[in-house]
Amino acid sequence: MIKLVAIDLDGTLLNNQKQISQENQAALAKAKENGIKIVLCTGRPLKAILPYLDVLNLRGAGDYSITFNGGLVQKNDTGTIVDKQALSVEDVTDLLVLAKQMDMPLDVLTDEVVLCFPTSSDHQTIYPKLNPLLVFQSATQQELTAETLYNKAVVAYDQKELDQWIPAIPKEFKERFEVIKTRSNLLEFMPKGVTKAYGIRLLAKELGIQSSEVMAIGDEENDLSMIHYAGVGVAMGNAIAAVKEAADIVTATNEENGVAQVIQQFM
């Protein structure tokens, strides 16, 4: 029996207009009425998904989200962090050096703001366009402090150029961090071992839920870990090939209310 459904946002729950369809809303509301935990599992910070939580009526006590690709497990009503894993100042410093060497834009997400560093004069970050709800501010390496929680670092740029940068990232960085594309034009650096599956595992333990009682629904590379972890892994019809191959079920696309279809099938 499914007790928790972990759902990715972009390309999964959201249609191409970045909206949650009425069909998806109704299916998730019905599942929640039946006692199933509905958990948004995303690379975004909590602040950037609050409008979606409101639409789904997931702002009450007992509602949770997994943010920063598993880096934080949070309570939706208060924002209280149940568990966390973050980058150190040394991690951020080394990523800034790498970005400067490769002439890439680099933004670092904290709990409060997105820090934009001057690592490239020729390539300007497009992250503000991807997440307009967040607060952005310019920063320098000298301003880094051990007291700040650095959740992740991102390179947001045109897909064609981004795909040329990725193979050039030194092996030691790929071994030290989780380096993964979460959208076609977004590359993320997370603490090693932090994935969506990591976050779901922490929350499931908190709630006393087994992996066999979890359904995970996604479409992109960063959803693979939770697709493998869940008792029922679901790939969207628009998912990349690797996600479809890993999934137990392939549902309809995000434009065809694939989330609602698989929820109705199981619930």
Rank of each mutant, 00 (worst) to 15 (best):
22 Q>H: 11
182 T>W: 00
33 E>Y: 05
5 V>H: 03
116 C>Y: 02
107 D>M: 01
36 I>L: 04
71 G>S: 08
211 S>N: 11
218 G>K: 01
167 P>N: 07
195 T>F: 04
52 Y>L: 12
115 L>P: 09
112 E>T: 15
182 T>Y: 01
190 M>A: 13
23 E>L: 13
29 A>L: 07
52 Y>C: 07
104 M>S: 12
164 Q>K: 13
44 R>M: 08
61 A>F: 15
156 A>Q: 07
132 P>T: 13
64 Y>A: 05
248 D>C: 01
222 N>Q: 02
9 L>D: 07
226 M>L: 02
164 Q>W: 04
86 A>N: 12
145 T>Y: 08
262 V>I: 14
177 F>P: 03
84 K>G: 08
97 V>K: 14
45 P>F: 10
39 V>M: 08
223 D>G: 05
248 D>I: 12
68 F>A: 06
13 L>N: 01
186 L>C: 13
258 G>M: 07
119 T>V: 12
154 V>D: 00
226 M>I: 02
41 C>P: 07
111 D>V: 09
20 I>D: 00
75 K>G: 05
259 V>H: 08
119 T>F: 10
18 K>Q: 10
23 E>G: 04
218 G>H: 03
235 A>W: 02
71 G>K: 09
20 I>C: 04
50 L>I: 15
52 Y>E: 07
41 C>F: 04
246 A>C: 05
37 K>C: 07
15 N>T: 12
79 G>L: 09
12 T>P: 02
206 E>H: 15
145 T>K: 14
249 I>R: 02
32 K>W: 06
36 I>R: 01
96 L>Q: 06
232 V>M: 02
247 A>C: 08
138 S>C: 05
202 L>M: 11
131 N>K: 11
21 S>R: 05
212 S>L: 10
165 W>D: 00
